[in-house]
Design a protein around this nucleic acid. Structure first.
Lengths: 226, 226
DNA sequence: CAGTTCCGAGACCGTACAGTATCGTTAATT
DNA sequence: AATTAACGATACTGTACGGTCTCGGAACTG
């Protein structure tokens, strides 16, 4: 599932033994170019319209070059999806504002979500593929939603150890609420993911469920951010 | 958009004048059979995999019969979507068990879940076709998820007027949690919608958020209700 | 019955596309 | 410079599918 998909997979003979390595070397940075081109095409024509010819043309590559690196269109698309830049949630450097609510809000990066229409369109295109292909569903879910849910879980767990939240809270389920609903909203409803939406999730669902008081009267300053 | 798409459209000569109506009459109930078959195929193989041959085979019809009724595959699919049965959550006859938790659980109908899963699959299959059309995407989502959310909203509102739930609870947002997460789970994660999942939603999110105590120790009698 | 019309089955055609094979070019290595 | 592998371009093949056409049979009308 991780990138390579059997690189050097042309089943041939000699190449495996690396015969003194003369001549040109395969340029691995071209992989990224081709994957980017695939994502571009995906965003432009949708999942149904993507063809290898389009990808090759967009990448300025020959089809043979693509097939030298991936065995099929399906594998290329799967790799391309896995190649989407991770949701900028660095699990190592989570925000630490002192309160869970502040931490959760600090995860919100307007530019990360709405900056590129491209990613949104890719996700839209993905929505249809997700139902047709189990491997893609897992790849898409792993890239788009899981890191986010993991971040929420980590933040909630920290709030528990801090004593801010009851240890009996079902943070396993609660950590999936915002990512799931955001994915649903984006992929299916195709409405934008806004701060207002995030606030209604946090203040209407998460914080009340965690029995943290004060969430019910969000500060004016928070709302005016919208 | 509604069914006919130029019935009697074989562009021929005589038929237009209805010449004393002799011979066999076109069976309009077959339209519904074909549309159902189209939805079945859509749910099974997705939007990318649907072919007229599959639809014809599933409907036990000839391709020519389908093309006598619809001018193209696109029109057939559009008509099929409009043909999706509404979610049979009868907003007029909601359950009334005396507690919100009991009401929410009573909405769970294993047999209806199957139909609901089918609708969700159709919805996700449609995503690519609807990608160009925001209005259609919303309409599709409305048919499949909104009635469910409306039912939750009505049940929660009743719990508020009954005094079971604080009037300050954000039931607008909370009523969307279960339907959205169920849709996400079915569409993207492709895991089955189970009673266990529903219980973790209700007891881990909804009830805590509504500050109804006792949700943490669900009564045995509630579980056996299913 | 006889006449008419719709039906299912499936042969058929044209196009579009996945995947392969070929070829002349380019660039890294020696 | 000579060698050689990877490259872009593109011609080619096989197949799948949208859409049309034909045919024998069934069902309704009178």
């Amino acid at each position: 599932m991780t990138t390579k998909t059997e690189r050097t997979a042309r089943a041939h003979s000699s190449a495996d033994i690396e015969p003194a390595a003369r001549g040109r070397k395969r340029d691995h940075s071209r992989d990224a170019d081709i994957l980017d081109a695939a994502l571009d095409v995906l965003a432009e024509v949708g999942a149904a319209g993507i063809t290898m010819d389009l990808v090759a043309e967009r990448a300025g590559a020959g089809k043979a070059t693509i097939y030298r690196r991936w065995t099929s269109k399906a594998e290329l698309v799967i790799d391309a999806v896995a190649h989407i830049e991770r949701m900028q949630v660095d699990i190592e450097h989570l925000p630490d504002t002192g309160t869970l609510r502040g931490d959760l809000l600090a995860l919100f990066r307007p530019e990360a979500m709405e900056a590129s229409t491209r990613r949104l369109k890719i996700m839209s295109a993905l929505a249809s593929l997700l139902s047709a292909d189990q491997a893609l569903a897992e790849a898409g879910s792993a890239v788009i939603v899981k890191p986010w849910a993991d971040a929420h879980f980590a933040l909630m767990q920290r709030a528990v150890t801090r004593g801010e939240v009851s240890a009996r809270a079902d943070i396993t389920t609660l950590s999936q609420v915002v990512p799931s609903m955001a994915a649903y909203r984006t992929l299916v409803q195709r409405k934008p993911f806004t701060l207002e939406f995030l606030l209604s999730m946090i203040d209407g669902v998460i914080m009340p469920a965690l029995r943290i008081c004060g969430a019910r009267q969000p500060k004016k300053s928070d709302r005016s951010q919208t």
